[in-house]
């Protein structure tokens, strides 16, 4: 057992973990944060994408023991990254709803985390940047077109154009 202290969605946590536990295991099983999904457990599908010290990573590839002192943001913490009204969603979340970018929804938490991270780095990404930023998040339902549309719409809204 290893005691690990880190921050999740702005709150300090201390959890006991086994060396083989991944950050995804700990988020889901120990911390009850079930929004991050397991789709492959090999870092390929992107459904478990979270921000680790501000950077998107697949939580299934991160050993929990490694996050000592780190800050983690999950889908549950995305809304509070945007200084909107109390209880309001992040503009990326809003845009996914508005354009119908959500179908089965299983890829969506990871997809949104990747999209939010992209717009933090690049508020108006071009087509190639947008595609590359989301290439680590597979979606089997939408064909990605409406997801791109949602991210563009969110970018406009966040930039004040909408």
């Amino acid at each position: 057992m290893i005691l690990v202290s880190f921050e999740v969605n702005g709150t300090a946590v201390r959890v006991e973990v086994e060396p083989q536990d991944t950050l995804l295991d700990v988020l889901r099983q120990s911390l009850g944060l079930l929004g991050s999904k397991e789709g492959c457990a090999e870092g390929e599908c992107g459904a478990c994408t979270v921000l680790l010290d501000g950077l998107p990573v697949t939580a299934c590839l991160v050993l929990a023991a490694k996050v000592e002192g780190c800050s983690v943001t999950t889908i549950e913490g995305v809304a509070s990254m945007w200084k909107g009204e109390e209880g309001a969603l992040h503009p990326v979340q809003e845009a996914f709803i508005d354009v119908g970018a959500v179908q089965c929804g299983y890829c969506i938490p990871g997809m949104i985390v990747s999209a939010v991270s992209l717009l933090e780095r690049d508020p108006s990404p071009d087509e190639k940047t947008l595609r590359q930023a989301l290439a680590g998040n597979f979606c089997r339902c939408t064909g990605y077109n409406k997801i791109f549309e949602a991210v563009r719409r969110a970018a406009n809204r966040m930039g004040g154009d909408l």
Partner: peptide, 14 residues
């Protein structure tokens, strides 16, 4: 609650 697998190996953060 902790994760459910028994310890398989150790971990050292150097």
């Amino acid at each position: 609650m902790t994760a459910q697998t028994p310890t398989r190996f150790g971990y050292l953060r150097c």
